[in-house]
Amino acid sequence: MTTPHQRQAHNPQIIPREKLDFHLNDQDIPRYWWDKSAFKTRFADAMSTTFPVGERFFISCVRDYRERVTDPALQQEIKDFIRQEGQHGMVHDLFNSRLKEQGVAVGALERIYKYWLFDFFRKYASRKHTLAFTAAAEHMTAIMVHLLFDTPEMIEQADPRLAGMYAWHAMEEMEHKAVAFDVMQKVAKVGYGMRILAFIEISVFFPLATFLVMDHMFKVDGMSRWQRAKAWTKGLWWLYGIGGLFTKPSFLGHYLAYLKPGFHPWQAGELGTYKLWLAELERSGDPIAAGQTLRMA
């Protein structure tokens, strides 16, 4: 049984969007499409390799409890969450085909992700545990969304097609950021200890997996050991140095908020640029143009 589920009026509606064209087959998309930076680009590319398998994992973990949900509003949110996540996986599959053409071992990486998430984690961990991991991963994604898309910097620096793809993905992640958490709290009744354990797990797994894949990509790019060392030094400072992406107060406050016993994802509100993006998408139907509106944030 669930407790009554009421979505606050100011929170955005979860809207599955299909058949969006980001022109990912264009041949002129540069290899280093974000700020002409190997580190920034491969940071995003490494995450993209995780999405098709990762989204299927998240869908499976929420679907485990779908039949126990009796509240129609939460049932609809789960349905829309599944459709959105499915679309994310499909679009990133298309983008990942570009990475394959560059020599990135996407197929091998996906087999590794599948083994750890499905063949190992879902086989040996409880359904509550895997759902808690999903909720924690959704929180980490929400933090990245706020960091990268509540300022115009990423949009200004990135190729418009990839900026549009990631902006669309980010806005939809923000729309459904509370679904897995609500199922975890209201249906699965996951305790605080397991919630925090899963949060620690994703805090370790996310950077470790990303960095290992990035190192593979640097080698595929033909970077020498010295070039890789320079890229890592500069890039890790961008992430963890003074004023870095992961040391900003906006990140730390959002990140640590998950530790509060009374935490809920909507306490952080919606993305500040969401209404700009949504208005342009509804007006033009062009997700690339919608992404470019974030320059005006």
Rank of each mutant, 00 (worst) to 15 (best):
E85R: 01
E85H: 04
Q87F: 13
H88A: 03
H88T: 07
H88F: 02
V91F: 05
H92Q: 02
D93V: 11
D93P: 00
F95Y: 11
S97V: 15
R98Q: 07
L99F: 13
K100C: 03
V104A: 10
A105L: 12
A105M: 10
V106M: 11
V106Y: 12
V106A: 09
G107K: 09
G107C: 07
A108L: 10
L109E: 15
I112M: 09
I112Q: 07
Y113L: 03
K114C: 06
F120G: 10
F120V: 14
F121Y: 13
R122E: 15
K123V: 10
K123E: 10
A125Y: 09
R127C: 01
K128G: 06
T130F: 00
L131K: 07
L131W: 06
T134K: 00
T134N: 03
T134C: 04
A136Q: 11
I143S: 04
V145K: 00
H146A: 15
L147E: 08
L147T: 14
L147P: 04
F149W: 14
F149Y: 10
D150G: 03
T151Y: 03
P152D: 06
E156Q: 11
A158M: 07
D159M: 02
P160M: 01
P160C: 07
R161T: 08
L162C: 10
A163E: 01
M165T: 15
Y166S: 06
A167L: 10
W168P: 14
M171H: 01
M171V: 05
E173W: 01
E175R: 01
H176K: 09
H176T: 15
K177A: 04
K177C: 06
A178N: 14
V179C: 01
F181A: 05
F181N: 05
D182G: 05
V183P: 11
Q185T: 15
G191K: 02
G191A: 02
Y192N: 11
G193F: 10
M194Y: 01
R195M: 04
A198C: 12
E201P: 08
I202A: 09
S203I: 09
F206S: 05
L208S: 06
A209T: 14
F211V: 15
M217Q: 12
M217C: 09
M217A: 09
M217N: 07
F218G: 09
K219T: 14
K219M: 10
V220W: 03
V220R: 02
D221L: 01
G222A: 05
